[in-house]
């Protein structure tokens, strides 16, 4: 796709003011009406990011499905308690952050960034998040000797059926089949190696 810089066409197109005039006869929107939609969209995004459906959320939280629908559709004026509970049921914390209007809002968990071919999540996010590379024992040993060792190693038993791709991401919520596997967490120091069973 290419960009068009045809000023003649651009001149004929409606400006932001033209668009706004379309709604001039309508009731003025309160700033909170728009903020409310943004908050509702963010709650819906958190649900999606948590891989849960509305029905699953209703079942696990005990909320009525109509309440979930109302909150996610931006109806009414949900209290901070409602939003906080919503986040907590999904395993997240909800905070109240203040910022200058010209400052960018804090990153949300789903605001992923890509770097070096690996997809990971912003370090600004509150939840711990690790990106793991799948390595053989030999590769780990080589890294240790060369001083390129990672902060944390997870060793998998051979019986494990979960085969990660080249690298995989573990968040605070681990895949169920991973949790069921015998995993040993090994710290980076091989001398006086500390092993801890998860």
């Amino acid at each position: 796709m290419s960009s068009k810089n045809d000023s003649a066409i651009q001149q004929s197109l409606p400006s932001e003011d033209d668009f706004y005039d379309l709604f001039a006869e309508l009731d003025e929107l309160e700033p909170f009406d728009i903020k409310k939609e943004e908050l509702a969209a963010q709650l819906a995004a958190l649900l999606s990011y948590s891989n849960k459906t509305r029905s699953e959320f209703a079942a696990s939280s005990g909320w009525k499905k109509s309440r979930v629908t109302n909150v996610l559709n931006g109806r009414g004026n949900p209290t901070f308690k409602t939003m906080w509970e919503f986040a907590r049921y999904l395993g997240f914390e909800a905070d109240l952050n203040f910022r200058h209007p010209n400052e960018a809002p804090a990153k949300q968990p789903w605001h992923c960034i890509k770097e070096g071919g690996l997809e990971y999540y912003s370090p600004q996010k509150a939840q711990p998040c690790y990106v793991f590379d799948l390595q053989t024992v030999g590769e780990v040993a080589r890294d240790m000797i060369e001083g390129n060792h990672k902060d944390i190693y997870l060793s998998f038993s051979k019986a494990a059926t979960y085969i990660p791709k080249q690298s995989t991401q573990f968040e605070h919520i681990m895949p169920i089949d991973l949790l069921q596997m015998p995993i040993t967490l090994v710290t980076k120091t091989m001398k006086g190696e500390i092993k801890e069973q998860i």
């Binding site: 709604f23 939609e37 969209a41 995004a45 649900l47 999606s48 459906t53 789903w110």
Partner: peptide, 21 residues
């Protein structure tokens, strides 16, 4: 106007529409 405001806000999250709607 309301529909487009909802659309923009949900589109900004980048989450699949089948999940957010």
């Amino acid at each position: 106007r309301t529909a487009f405001i909802k659309l923009f806000n949900n589109a900004a999250t980048g989450q699949p529409f089948q999940n957010v709607f």
